[in-house]
Design a protein around this nucleic acid. Sequence first.
RNA 1: GCGCCCGUAGCUCAGUCGGAUAGAGCAUCGGAUUCCUAAUCCGGAGGCCACAGGUUCGAAUCCUGUCGGGCGCACCA
Length: 575
Amino acid sequence: MTLYTRFRKQLDAALDALVAAGTLPEGLARGAVTVEPPRDPAHGDLATNAAMVLAKPAATNPRALAEAIAEQLRLIDEVAKVDVAGPGFINLRLVPNIWSDELRTIAEEGGDYGRSDAGAGVSVNIEYVSANPTGPMHMGHCRGAVVGDALADLLEFAGNTVTREYYVNDAGGQVDTLARSAHLRYREALGEDIGEIPEGLYPGDYLIPVGTLLAETYGDRFVAAPEADWLAEFRTRTVAAMMDMIRADLALLGIRHDVFASEAELQAAGKPDDAEAWLRARDLVYDGVLEAPKGETPDDWEPVELPLFRSTRFGDDQDRPIKKSNGSWTYFGADLAYHYQKAQSSDELIDIWGADHAGTVKRIKAAVAALTEEKTRFDVKLVQMVRLLRAGEPIKMSKRSGNFVTLADVVGEVGKDVVRFTMLTRKADAQMDFDFAKVVEASRDNPVWYVQYAHARIASLHRKIAELGIALTAPDLSRLVEDELAVVRLAAQFPRIVEAAAAAREPHRIAFYLGDLAAAFHALWNVGNDDPARRMIVAADPMLTSTRLFMADQIGQVIRNGLALMGVEAAEELN
RNA sequence: GCGCCCGUAGCUCAGUCGGAUAGAGCAUCGGAUUCCUAAUCCGGAGGCCACAGGUUCGAAUCCUGUCGGGCGCACCA
């Protein structure tokens, strides 16, 4: 339980007392009541808006109600002072040791400090990456992978049961193209000169070893055989090889999914048919003809009757086909069944998608709403594009020639931790630049470095103290001064940052918080530049040194815990 | 034509369920520092939160409209 939820409970008790006394009517909704740190520390340690929120429904004025609540709060032992301010804020000043005691809590809980049970009992399925199995991962996939993985970590830390899932799109036309491309490489492996890779097939070199493998497996018997003889088998083999490659790429980022769900298997098991039947029985799928698209009408457009899902009933702009005119499932038709399947085993669903799929969010949300009868929370988080820069110049990528920057290249160049942290330094739905030079720069304006530097500085204290042979004692937390306690207060915010970030499904908040915490710690450290008595290590005073070390260690612990949520290892040393 | 996302300091971006005087970094300006607790530090200035209405005790935040930018718009995935 965080300090804030603990005081929230005490506030509730105070409100109950006022209800019992007849000052407040019974049954007022308290959902909007908050207990948080005031923006201006001069206002105190905690502030609540309770009086302003409750004044109107209680038919009283906020200041008067605030006074009544304040009277109750003054009875709490840990509360040193209560003020009513502004339009009716109640500011609490806590007894001085409340924050230094939080240091002991951090020390006791260690890696679990900040862990919450806010999400207890709620299982969440988070689907991320889901790159088409047609080649290695490139940087376009990277951000979604990191955001999804960090969000999964975050939700787990906040108490949710999390399933990490990857949807393998192994059933569409693209994987047929992939199989044909592999067939070409197969013939090449058997000695044939295949020349230029024809337009429309995948040209990448990564299919060469697949061709070799296919040649070893099948010999030459499919060289001249009709496509129908080998297509399915080649497709299965090649997709499997691609997925091995993708899993290896993901492993470079420290990402492991729990479930790889195959679209082909889903279809083979008849799941889309089941979903269609279920929806038809409720008149949510019907056979109809779509209108021509507004604006520029494609030349080859012609009206066709297709089975349509009534997504307009759930807020979409148009009903959507679930099958193509050739009878096969559309991507949406299968995806709808897939989401139904996920909703069977989890309470809540999250999809992480590239922003280029924004146009299909409404239909899938409509489908989930229909299939779960609006009972399942479902968020689609859109992740914006990343622009790769080298020395300030955008790197040009041409998909056609297969000349794209792969994820493996980038991780190889700057390292997993830098990639992961950097991907979380922006809100997911904001565009981002990734400059190879800037992300590894050792300077104040590189948050990755700045946070690691703070941690490394703390680690260096132990080395230095050992070197100096200072005999450590038990810390005396009463010796911490005000601006040290200010940093401790910030460290103590971590649990509520975790809860807020998890509730909002925004892992980037952890990165920003760590940047703030690191900055505050550095500022404290820098005081020692001018004033040796304020250094973390004061050799002449072992107890003071021990106290400051204890404080620094707990700040380091919070940094480690935050970095762990981002899948980043904390550095002991920088070089 | 329609839909989605976005519009916050010169630049890049945060901004908690709607909360008190809207915050950082860079750049800029003014100081300090040549130190090894290093890969600088401290401070100042800089804002019609795109614009106009609305909701309410209170709006950068919610609603409506306008303007501007990005993305997407039949059986591709």
